[in-house]
Lab assay of single mutants.
Amino acid sequence: LQLFIKTLTGKTSTVEMEPSDTIENLKAKIQDKEGIPPDQQRLIFAGKQLEDGRTLSDYNIQKESTLHLVL
């Protein structure tokens, strides 16, 4: 599924993920695209901070969801 990652600067990146992927996997993919180390990334979806060990489906993240990346 395609996700949009929006940064505080207003920049939006697109990443392709599976519902079974963990937040950790997602942060690794963001690191590949943006060069931001996972330990500096905080991802927010629906007002919640996402935890590394959980999966996208745990948070009911659907295709074309927008996640907010806070550093």
Rank of each mutant, 00 (worst) to 15 (best):
I61H: 02
T9N: 14
A46H: 13
P38W: 12
L26M: 04
I23Y: 01
A28Y: 12
E51L: 09
L69H: 01
M17S: 05
L71G: 06
D21T: 04
L43S: 00
M17C: 11
D39P: 06
T9E: 12
Q62T: 14
P19A: 12
L69K: 00
R42V: 15
L56C: 02
A46E: 15
E18P: 04
T55A: 06
F4W: 10
G35R: 05
S20Y: 13
G47D: 06
L71Y: 10
K11H: 12
I23T: 04
D32H: 12
K27Q: 02
S13I: 15
L50W: 01
E16C: 12
L67Y: 03
E18L: 14
L50A: 02
D39H: 13
K33L: 15
D58C: 03
K29P: 00
L71W: 12
D58N: 05
T14N: 06
D52E: 08
S20I: 05
L1C: 05
F4Q: 07
L3Q: 02
R42Y: 12
L3Y: 03
S65F: 07
T14F: 11
D58L: 03
N25Q: 14
R42F: 12
T7S: 10
E34S: 12
L71H: 08
T55H: 06
V15R: 00
I61T: 02
P37E: 08
K6R: 11
K33I: 15
L43I: 13
I23R: 00
K6N: 05
E18K: 13
Q2G: 04
L56K: 01
L43R: 00
P38S: 14
D58F: 15
P38K: 15
K27A: 02
M17N: 01
I23F: 02
G47P: 01
I44K: 04
L50M: 06
S13R: 09
E51Y: 07
K27C: 03
E51R: 07
Q41M: 14
L26Q: 02
D52L: 06
G47Y: 04
T14H: 08
L50P: 01
E16W: 15
T9A: 12
H68D: 07
I44E: 09
D52R: 03
I44R: 04
N25P: 00
S13K: 07
L8S: 14
T66D: 03
G53L: 06
